[in-house]
Design a binder for these strands. Structure first.
Length: 920
RNA sequence: GCCUCUGUGGUGGAAUUGGUAGACACGCAGGACUUAAAAUCCUGUGACCUCAACAGUCGUGCGGGUUCAAGUCCCGCCGGAGGUACCA
């Protein structure tokens, strides 16, 4: 029987499924290991070769850890709520549940073919009512919680109500809306139900609040900050506006500091941590009040550079600032109204596109400088953002680039208050130098001056030292159909969450997936909503990231109907040991899942406060697009080598009809009708195409599916080849140039002891060279896996099999450990050969082989020990020596080494005692 | 602009703490088997000098530095990828 991957792979995939080989044990004496992949959104396009990259890596780890004696949890599921299915439903009328189901089946089929060791009994689907029941349940817990800054954790809202009844809100130190009013216990008691609800709403961790949101008219929904890129929606690229709306939001800002601190406790890539740090955007500074001239009002600003207070020559407020109307003088009224209208109509995209273009208008009003008493003009400018800090800045053109641009443009004075280069032409922003022209701050270094300034500001009651975060609360409502219904109803205009025992609130049927005529979301069309006719109900649904913010917990107890996951099981499985997924989720999913985990931890539902100990971002696999060249104005296509002779247009063609840049012309004619009558100009009888590296996408016809590779070379080859392509974390274009090497390797492995028609295995004891090859390989593979260097392990397998082939080694004592080593990478062939060697049990749980310590084998050394800063041993020579003799040689080597005359060696390596016992 | 990563043969990429650079694979060239092809196997393959071998010289983006020794560490440039931005 020659190596027939098709039969073998089918056989073992069936066996694994029937025997539930990879079902994780919920109570085991073995140590646990949890390997998780980011679950996919089941799109209509199916998997391409880029998707399995991370899954293969995690599967190798899962299988490796099983060999190492761990109880491994390695689940998979689907993030099955989302926009594309709904857009498709709008176009075709097909229910999203139906297309989602179809897509999931297709994904499952593709995943099964690759031979992953998932525990499918634990599959989750975020769109399944038995799953989103608990997503809704967590929403309710968040609603019923507030963040206590004194205990520094989330607590039940009852503790807040108790405090209100006792002391009002005077002692409460919680993140809440800026304009929360102070009240006493008796005032609280006198509040109406509505007033109480409104007040509590300002503290709840999920709340209904008015906020500027990213409104996308084309999608008819709001989007979170991380769903907007460059002023357009991430999905679909539609323009986004800012709009003030009443929305359900998550008070993630309460966790800003803990999300920041937690980063130091987890093993994630530095770049990803940096992204999150930047997104959270902590900045320390001070608030500062300016008295408005001839008015009772104070204008409050936030600054990180209070040391430059004497350099303030104007103050700028955002066009949306609440004071704009009230402070503008009648002479300036027309100009200001005109400017503010224009600024508001400017889309976010325009506003972000040309940041260097300066615009603004003088309000006619002034503030009084708190230290000099001078008159300072107030301007309106759209470079000041309404949503950050106080929406007003003190402008120091000498030491802030943006203020400088503004001052230059409008001819406002530029003052220098920090020693350094002249600031008339260019601002000096560095936080270095000594204060000048600054009264009590003169001569002080910037860092000292900042502290001194804050002290003085606080002493005079002008403001307070303050930490600001860039992070905003996350808008949680979406005006869409295909998402988790928010379990809220309204009684007399007061929002109530549903009782927990009535969950899930099932997504109701609608007649159309479009908004209603009066602009209400699709859920307003619900025919059979739970409380229809009894109460008003919430029409928005949860965003895409809701279901994925806690799914790692559900896998621990996926079929539990009475709780989101049994506490005993979450205590056992703790959190994810290894999480693999794309870096595009850095500021979305990976921030939200940390937030929910910390919340559930605070409320005592779980006992860990980070979802994943270690996280690896697999690189993207780009596509290699192919194109042919049509001569302009004709129906003629020319080969790539001839295209420069003509004016031509490149046309993308399907990569699957191209082999090694040779286009199959017959297939091309069939592929697109309009090529049927095309004239082709070939070179050397071939039509050569051009190539380009682009994102793998239907649009460029460069999608390669794992199925086609499995069909042609087998799943084991696909797995090995994807690893062989390069380091896991690096992005790289897909090409099949080297795949024959990997495929050839598996054939060689097969032939190692399948010779001339039968399996022949020798029971003889291995020779020294055979053992040397084996142990070297065990050592290298172990180290490769431990440091996630899967590409080099493939090379090391090849070296090993080549060497054993040269030695004509077919000895059981060598082949068995080798099969265990290879089994995580190429499980099907390993299982088959394992069975051929007479084993009845799956190889999956065979112990991983241990290696004898091999300390640098150097074949071409003719001295037992050499010293070149490090020790090098010729083991064959050294093995015959006693420890004493070796130590003597080491001393000699150190003393006689030519580089060490008169110097101490930098490093002394202790000779391992084990060395004399080495076999080889 | 800022942050993170990265730069090694014709190509993908090895080189774990500084210690024989280019493992392994692809490609290419030559050979064996074959009527032929496929498959398989063998040999060679960084550059320069040389008929060739031996030997030698140069070589990890560029310029410096530390070190007995630098792809690896330090300083300064240049290029590429990704992320991010009027955040005061």
């Amino acid at each position: 029987m020659e190596y027939n991957f098709k039969d073998i792979e089918k056989k073992w995939q069936n066996k694994w499924a029937t025997n539930k080989t990879f079902a994780a044990d919920n109570s085991s004496s073995k140590p646990k290991y949890y390997v998780l992949d980011m679950f996919p959104y089941p799109s209509g396009a199916g998997l391409h070769v880029g998707h399995p990259l991370g899954y293969i890596a995690s599967d190798i780890m899962a299988r490796y850890k099983r060999h190492k004696g761990f109880n491994v949890l390695h689940p998979m599921g689907y993030d099955s709520f989302g926009l594309p299915a709904e857009q498709y439903a709008i176009q075709t009328g097909q229910h999203p549940a139906v297309t989602t189901e179809q897509n999931i089946n297709r994904y499952r089929e593709q995943l099964d073919k690759i031979g992953f060791s998932f525990d499918w009994d634990r599959e989750v689907r975020t769109s399944d009512p038995s799953y989103y029941k608990w997503t809704q349940w967590i929403f309710i817990q968040l609603f019923n919680s507030w963040y206590n800054n004194k205990s520094n954790k989330a607590e039940n809202i009852d503790t807040l109500i108790a405090e209100f009844e006792k002391n009002g809100n005077s002692n409460i130190n919680a993140p809440c809306d800026e304009n929360t009013k102070a009240f006493t216990a008796s005032e609280w008691k006198s509040y109406s139900e509505k007033e109480k609800s409104d007040t509590l709403m300002q503290y709840r961790l999920t709340y209904l609040g008015e906020a500027y949101v990213n409104w996308c008219p084309a999608l008819g929904t709001v989007l979170a900050n991380d769903e907007v890129k460059d002023g357009v929606s991430e999905r679909g690229g539609h323009p986004v506006e800012r709009k003030l709306m009443k929305q359900w939001s998550m008070r993630i800002t309460a966790y800003a500091q803990r999300l920041l601190d937690g980063l130091d406790t987890i093993d994630w890539t530095e770049s990803l941590k940096e992204s999150q740090r930047y997104w959270i955007g902590r900045s320390e500074g001070t608030s500062l009040k300016f008295q408005i001239e001839n008015s009772d009002l104070h204008l409050e600003v936030f600054t990180t550079r209070p040391d430059t207070i004497y350099g303030v020559s104007f103050v700028t407020i955002a066009p949306e600032h609440e004071y704009v109307d009230s402070i503008t003088t009648s002479e300036q009224k027309a100009a200001v109204v005109d400017y503010v209208t224009k600024a508001k109509n400017r889309s976010e995209r325009e506003r972000q596109a040309d940041v260097t273009k300066v615009s603004g208008v003088f309000t006619g009003a002034y503030v009084i400088h708190p230290f000099t008493g001078k008159q300072i003009p107030i301007w309106v400018g759209d470079y000041v953002l309404a949503g950050y800090g106080t929406g007003a800045v003190m402008a120091v053109p000498g030491h802030d680039e943006r203020d400088h641009r503004f001052a230059k443009h409008f001819g406002l004075p530029i003052l220098q208050v920090v020693e350094g280069p002249d600031v008339q032409e260019q601002s000096y922003d560095a936080k270095e130098g000594k204060g000048i022209n600054s009264d009590f701050l003169n001569g002080l270094d910037v860092k000292v001056a900042i502290k001194k300034a804050i002290e003085e500001i606080e002493k005079r009651g002008l403001g307070k030292g303050k930490t600001n975060y860039r992070l905003r609360d996350a808008v949680f409502g979406r005006q869409r159909y295909w998402g988790e219904p928010i379990p809220v109803y309204y009684k007399d205009g007061i929002p109530h969450v549903m009782p927990e025992n009535e969950l899930p609130l099932v997504l109701p049927e609608v007649d159309k997936f479009l908004p209603t005529e009066d602009g209400e979301p699709p859920l307003a069309r619900a025919k059979d909503w739970k409380y229809k006719g009894q109460f008003d109900y919430e029409h928005t649904t949860m965003p895409g990231w809701a279901g994925s913010s806690w799914y790692f917990l559900r896998y621990m107890d996926a079929n539990n109907n009475s709780v989101f996951a049994d506490k005993k099981l979450t205590d056992y499985w703790q959190n994810v040991d290894l999480y693999i997924g794309g870096s595009e989720h850095a500021t979305g999913h990976l921030l939200y899942v940390r937030f929910w985990t910390k919340f559930l931890f605070d409320r005592g539902f779980i006992s860990v406060d980070e979802p994943a100990k270690k996280l690896i971002n697999q690189g993207m696999i780009q596509g290699t697009s192919c194109m042919v060249y049509r001569v302009n104005g004709t129906n003629k296509i020319v080969s790539a080598g001839l295209k420069n002779q003509y004016e031509n247009t490149a046309i993308h063609i399907d990569v699957n009809i191209v082999d090694n840049n040779n286009v199959d012309v017959e297939k091309l004619k069939i592929w697109r009708d309009d090529f049927a009558n095309t004239e082709f100009e070939l070179e050397g009888g071939k039509l050569i195409c051009g190539t380009a590296v682009e994102k793998m996408s239907k649009r460029w016809y460069n999608v390669v599916t794992p199925d086609s590779i499995c069909e042609k070379f087998g799943a084991d080859t696909l797995r090995l080849y994807e690893m062989f392509l390069g380091p896991l974390e690096q992005s790289k274009p897909w090409n099949t140039n080297g795949i024959t090497g990997v495929s050839g390797f598996l054939k060689k492995l097969w032939r190692l002891f399948y010779q001339s028609g039968s399996f022949v295995v020798s029971e003889d004891a291995p020779t020294k060279p055979e053992l040397k090859t084996l142990h070297k390989t065990i050592k290298k593979i172990t180290e490769d896996i431990e440091r996630f260097s899967f590409n080099t392990s493939v090379s090391n397998f090849m070296i090993c099999v080549n060497e054993l082939g040269d030695l004509k080694c077919n000895k059981r004592a060598v082949i068995e450990p080798l099969l265990v080593l290879i089994s995580p990478y190429a499980p099907h062939i390993a299982e088959e050969l394992w069975e051929q060697l007479g084993h009845k049990e799956s190889i999956a749980f065979a112990p991983f082989p241990e290696f004898n310590e091999v300390y640098l084998v150097e074949d071409n050394f003719n001295y037992p020990i050499s010293f070149n800063g490090k020790m090098r041993f010729n083991l064959e020579l050294a093995a015959n020596l006693s420890v004493q003799e070796i130590e003597k040689l080491v001393m000699e080597a150190e003393q006689t080494h030519k580089y060490l005359e008169g110097k101490q060696p930098k490093k002394v390596i202790i000779v391992p005692k084990k060395i004399v016992n080495i076999v080889m």
